[in-house]
């Protein structure tokens, strides 16, 4: 495996280290690029960045099969407003001018292929992206993308799930250079199932045997209480649908971010 860390990986690891030093799990809010509109996105992102250790920005996609209705609708709205792949990267570039917080870009794999993997990485690097989160790309499906990302200074994050066998956890964990993303439930984003986090501790124990990078947990974390639950076992907490809903409902996104960020303390 690669011995030297990319710049993006270093910045992401440092963010986790700072949180750990503060006796917290890293707080990683998610927002769909161009949501609620291209013009409205920067203010929402700013509000999240005021509390985030890492910001996750999603490229809106027409067929997001790992996402529940909330993020699907956000994607549709962003696309309808004219934000697709390149525009999302421009929005990130704009954030980068004002913020130093690491930014991880979540994208389904088709936009990478459509733009061209090398060109995509070049654009991402130029925009100031630190890492990629790839929800529909098991690492053994494309060995070139991680290499191209590394060449452009970007970290990569792949996902594991409660159904993952020890062999898959090992394979995925070893492929991650940014952080490892553990999906809390069998399901899509924004799940509301009651026992959502029951499978997390066992999955994390397995993940830690193989991961040389921090492990963050997402899906089903929606408030300070669920964040606290996850923060007690994970290095990072990812929260997405709750912020989309807050924007839709006209709530104070910054206040919700502050509340959940506080929940990430141990």
């Amino acid at each position: 495996m690669t011995a030297t860390l990319t710049r993006g990986a270093e910045r992401i690891h440092a963010a986790f280290a700072r949180a750990r030093a503060g006796n917290r799990a890293a707080f990683i809010p998610f927002m769909t690029g161009g949501f609620p509109s291209a013009a409205g996105f920067p203010a929402v992102a700013d509000a999240l960045l005021a509390h985030a250790d890492i910001l996750e920005v999603g490229i809106p996609y027409s067929d997001p099969l790992g996402d529940g209705p909330t993020i699907q609708r956000a994607s549709e709205q962003a696309l309808a407003g004219g934000t697709s792949t390149r525009r999302t990267l421009e929005l990130v570039r704009d954030l980068r001018r004002r913020h130093d917080t690491p930014i991880a870009l979540m994208t389904y794999v088709n936009p990478i292929y459509a733009v061209g993997p090398r060109e995509f990485m070049r654009l991402a690097q130029e925009a100031g992206v630190d890492g990629l989160i790839l929800p529909d790309l098991p690492p053994d499906q494309d060995l070139e993308i991680a290499d191209l990302a590394a060449e452009h200074g970007l970290a990569v994050t792949f996902l594991i799930a409660p159904t993952s066998t020890p062999e898959r956890v090992k394979l995925v964990a070893e492929a991650c250079t940014g952080f490892l993303y553990a999906v809390s439930v069998t399901g899509v984003t924004g799940t509301r199932e009651g026992s959502a986090l029951a499978e997390v501790p066992a999955m994390l124990a397995l993940a830690r045997q193989h991961a040389r990078v921090p492990v963050a947990v997402g899906f089903g974390v929606k408030d300070a209480a669920t964040a606290r639950q996850v923060a007690s076992v994970a290095d990072g907490v990812v929260v997405g649908s709750a912020f989309i809903q807050a924007v839709q409902g006209g709530q104070d996104v910054g206040a919700l971010a502050a509340e959940i960020a506080a929940g990430c303390g141990r």
Binding site: L65, L137, L159, A161, T163, R168, V183
Partner: peptide
């Protein structure tokens, strides 16, 4: 190929 969420691989 298998471009799906990791949940489905097993």
């Amino acid at each position: 190929g298998r471009y799906v969420p990791e949940t489905l691989i097993p």
